[in-house]
Amino acid sequence: MDTKQHLENLNEIKQIMNRSTRFLSLSGLSGIIAGISALVGAALGYIVLNKGSYISGVTYFNSKVLLDVNSIIFYQLLFIGVGVLCSALFFGFYFTYRKAKKEDQTIWNKASKKMLLNLAVPLLVGGVFSLILIRYNLFGLVAPVTLIFYGLACVNASHHTHSEIGGIGYFNILLGLLNAYFIGYGILFWTLGFGVLHIIYGTLMYLKYDRK
């Protein structure tokens, strides 16, 4: 065996170690589309609240006035939220599936399972915690809590996928903590965290890993 062969072997060892622990098919486009969905959702939410503010008294940046759970506005916002989630999940899945197929990899493997499990635990805890906050009418804290737990979930999952996911996580935790201090600006911080951050990091990942 000559030097070149040894060098190739070492590189292959590194690749195998990475591939077997990290889910590298995660597409940057998935992040970009999640960010765009969030921005569209925030804009629609703004329109709904602005139009209805003379009836409900609730405005975009006012957490003091409670939104009636039975009002049309509440259902409109709920509809927007579910729409954003579905769009982000559907297109996110699609672009990652496409990338995995192109690279002759599967999307359901040891690495992706580890990534999802690491993502799911903080995410579920945060979700349940948010529901409890809503139960006690602590609406102002819901946005910071979702940002913080989503950030923790990303940091946790980043060990099993591209390290950029950790960056999204740390910035979301920071935004969440700031939002916890400046209660009432939830949608602004949400737009930054779930919208702008996803687009920035999605683009970074796309340029670094996807564009070949």
Binding site: M1, E12, S20
Partner: peptide
């Protein structure tokens, strides 16, 4: 460790605990 396959098997097992045969086959 002279064979590339043995290098591959060991690489996977250095960073993963208890890997099954099919997963190993797929990874390599």
């Amino acid at each position: 460790f002279e064979s590339r396959i043995r290098l591959g098997v060991m690489s996977v097992l250095m960073v993963n605990d208890w890997v099954d045969f099919n997963t190993m086959k797929e990874l390599l």
